[in-house]
């Protein structure tokens, strides 16, 4: 923020904290500038109470998304298993490489297919409900717009990515925030991108696979951000890391750990920004696994100026 010359006041989106949305004192203390919490989560709760038809449609959409995700997960499981199994076969390396390449390509096609399906569900929800025109939503949105008008930049905190994304979509916050500097971290950073990938290599039920989870708001295109990657991913397992990045190529996956950040140029001078990417093995910081791709994506620009990984304390 200092590099961007942003002094506040700031609008905060903490909907990812769900019912703890208003517990933002720590954030206020840390930044020391006036903050207006946009209270997106509680606004959505109010809308759902006032508009039960919209609430029912929202739930139905979530059921469809969950169903799609379950089917996608089955396919990913087998697709990833196929890639791994091919690598273990005692066959000539050139033969294996070709088959593996095709198996990875199949996974990439699956990611595209799933993204398309998710986009369709969201589009259908929009058409069927006309949610942005509904009185309760429109009223809250006007209030948000008015609050934003008083603010220099927007903060988007982490938390529950699905809750955060859905609430931001409900009030069309991508449109409202597009021309403002945005500082987003953890789940907030994920929400800014075009593709939200969720991941954890060591959950208690045993390792699963990273999943394309949802369409992001698209304010920071061309990158997939992986916050808190050192804790959540087995970065010391090159085969696992490689397959993850290959699945989503050419979009670069960027591991954002404590202190790491990437900046997307926007209304502010892009030369003032850049990205802090520590090469693998050089301690904390954002790590780009596909350096060239990242550089290209940074050059393409966007309206989000900062995506940051948060520390343990968020």
């Amino acid at each position: 923020m200092a590099r961007a010359g942003v002094k506040g006041p700031l609008a905060a989106i903490t909907a990812g904290w769900q019912e703890r949305e208003s517990e933002d004192q720590e954030l206020r203390d840390a930044l020391g500038v006036p903050i207006v919490n946009l209270s997106i989560h509680s606004r959505a709760e109010r809308v759902f109470r006032e508009d039960p038809e919209l609430f029912a449609a929202h739930r139905a959409r979530q059921d469809r998304v969950r169903g799609l995700q379950e089917l996608y997960r089955v396919r990913v499981k087998h697709g990833v298993a196929a890639v791994r199994a091919l690598g273990d076969r005692p066959v000539a390396a050139d033969l294996v490489a070709s088959e593996r390449e095709d198996a990875v390509a199949a996974l990439r096609r699956l990611e595209e297919h799933h993204l398309g399906r998710l986009q369709s569900v969201h589009a259908a929800f929009s058409v069927e409900t006309g949610f942005d025109q509904r009185p309760a939503v429109a009223r809250e949105r006007r209030e948000i717009e008015a609050a934003l008008a008083e603010c220099e930049a927007v903060l988007v905190a982490g938390g529950h990515i699905a809750v955060l994304l859905n609430r931001m979509r409900l009030f069309s916050l991508a449109e409202l925030c597009r021309d403002r500097p945005i500082f987003a971290w953890s789940a907030g950073a994920m929400a800014m991108t075009e593709r939200v990938v969720v991941f954890h290599d060591s959950p208690p039920q045993g390792p699963g696979n990273a999943e394309l989870f949802d369409v992001g708001l698209g304010l920071a295109g061309g990158v997939i951000v992986l916050p808190d990657a050192q804790r959540r991913l087995r970065l010391g397992d090159p085969k696992r890391v490689a397959l993850l990045s290959q699945r989503f190529a050419p979009t670069p996956c960027v591991a954002l750990d404590e202190g790491g950040w990437i900046a997307r140029r926007a209304a502010l001078d892009p030369r003032a920004f850049g990205h802090q990417v520590a090469p693998p093995g050089e301690g904390d910081g954002a790590r780009a696994w596909m350096g060239e791709g990242l550089a290209r994506s940074l050059e393409r620009g966007g309206s989000v100026i900062a995506l940051s990984g948060a520390g343990e304390e968020g």
């Binding site: 990812g16 529950h160 789940a187 969720v198 954890h200 959950p203 039920q205 045993g206 808190d228």
Partner: peptide, 14 residues
């Protein structure tokens, strides 16, 4: 329980 009813560990990034 975590296998049958997985929590939002995969979805929460603080």
């Amino acid at each position: 329980l975590s296998w049958l009813f997985p929590g939002p560990l995969l979805l929460v990034y603080e």
